[in-house]
Every structure is written in C-alpha cells, then in structure tokens.
C-alpha cells in the first residue's frame, strides 16, 4: 500500500500519522505539500490534524481551496481511500466530500482528553481489524469537533450505515456523558457512500504504542494495511 500524507500549512499531526502508518505498513508514507497537484500511484490519502491556515477562518475552509484538493477529490472519485482526522475531517466537510460540519465544542472550550469510540461497522477498510460494537480509547484534541448536520442528513447517514464511530462511555453506552463535544447523535466519524472516505475527530494515530498509554488506535492502521495490501 502506498500512502500519502497531505501537508497543509499549519497542519501539526503529520509526524504522528507518519509514525502510525509506518508501524502498520512497514513503509514511510509520502509527504505531499498542499501546493502539489498530483496524487498518482497513491492508494491511501491521509489528511492529518492540526490548524491548517491557523483555523483563522472556519476550520478547514482555506485548506479546502488548496491546489491539492482537486487531486484528492479525483482520487476519491476513482474509488481511492481517503482518511481525514480532526482538521482533516473538517477539511473534508468544507470540501463537500463528507456531509455536515464541525461546530465549536458544546462547552466552548478546547478539549484535550481520551474519549471512547464505539465501532458502528467493521466491514470497511478502515475498521476491519475492529469488531462491530467494540469500544476503543482514543485521544482527542480539538476546539471544533461538534458534529452537526440536518436531521435529514443524519437520518440518511444512519439509514445507509455511514456512521463509522460514535462517542460512547467506556462500556459502550451512547449517552450524553460519553459525548464530550456535543456531537449530533454522538457521531465521531462518518463514511462516504462507497465507504472509502472516512473522517473522524479523535486521534487513533496517537495511541499505537504501549508506551504512550495503549495501542487502541493501531487496529485502524493494521486494518488499512491489510485491506489495501496489493
């Protein structure tokens, strides 16, 4: 599998992502600067977390206009896999590649903490190494992670099984106390209709090493490596 990490100015979790990808795939991902325009030969495009363009405008809005975006869109349209984490998720929604928006956290403060995610479907390239209903821990670090979409869109996402992860309590219950940022229906991550574009707010890439407190995030990358091995 050939992976590329797209680096927008102000992105800051590209190194974390590269470490996680290399650990699972055995290869260093390619770093692609946002002013480039081609993603030829790439199987997985990753948009990591950070503060693209400082998030001075709406989070992700500037990056969604970068020169690399048409190539990312084309990659997705030809069935390529795209993973957007945190700011990457925000960029994907701003680019219209995933529905909805990420609003300010309900408490109006930046949150840095571990959350628990419940896996809503395990039959995707991103979640194949998890079980459906499995709960895993992941760090989150964001000020704008409050997923919002119209009732219609939320119903469609749920109806079509496009919710990948929900915030949950450690034992897997979907309750307000397990939903740190106020996301609609506790949604933490969503998929495109062809299941090949995933956006999520928390950072599984920061929990792939027992020394850092656990390996709960590693199955996501192991699963991708297995699914895209060819």
């Amino acid at each position: 599998m050939k992976a590329a990490i797209v680096v927008f100015p102000g992105i800051n979790r590209e190194r974390d992502m590269a470490i996680a990808l290399e650990l699972s795939t055995g290869h260093k991902p390619k770093m692609v600067w946002h002013k480039e325009t081609s993603l030829d030969g790439i199987d997985l495009v990753v948009i990591p977390g950070g503060f693209s363009f400082g998030d001075y405008l709406r989070c992700g809005a500037m990056a969604a206009q970068s020169p690399i975006m048409p190539a990312i869109r084309a990659h997705a349209e030809r069935g390529g896999h795209v993973l957007g984490v945190c700011n990457g998720f925000q960029i994907l929604t701003e680019a219209g590649m995933l529905p909805g928006a990420l609003l300010r956290n309900a408490g109006l403060r930046f949150l840095s903490m571990d959350c628990h995610l419940r896996v809503e479907r395990a039959d995707t390239a991103f979640t194949g190494d998890y079980q459906r209903g499995q709960v895993f821990r992941a760090p989150l670090a964001h000020g704008d992670g409050n997923y919002f979409a119209s009732t219609e869109t939320l119903d469609r996402l749920e109806g079509e099984g496009l919710v990948a992860f929900r915030y949950a309590t450690p034992d897997g219950a979907i309750l307000p106390e397990g939903n740190p940022n106020g996301s609609a229906r506790s949604i933490a991550g969503i998929l495109s209709p062809n299941l090949r574009v995933l956006g999520l707010m928390p950072h599984p890439e920061d929990l792939v090493d027992p020394l850092m407190g656990g390996t709960d995030g590693k199955p996501l990358f192991d699963g991708l490596a297995a699914a895209l091995a060819a």
Partner: peptide, 16 residues
C-alpha cells in the same frame, strides 16, 4: 486546565 492543552500532539508523550 490541562484538559484545554493539547498534551499528545507529536505522539511521544509517555506521561501526560
């Protein structure tokens, strides 16, 4: 307080 500071970026924080 520290819940408002990103303490994990970089992926190397052994003791938070």
């Amino acid at each position: 307080v520290y819940g408002q500071y990103d303490s994990t970026v970089g992926g190397q924080t052994v003791k938070r």
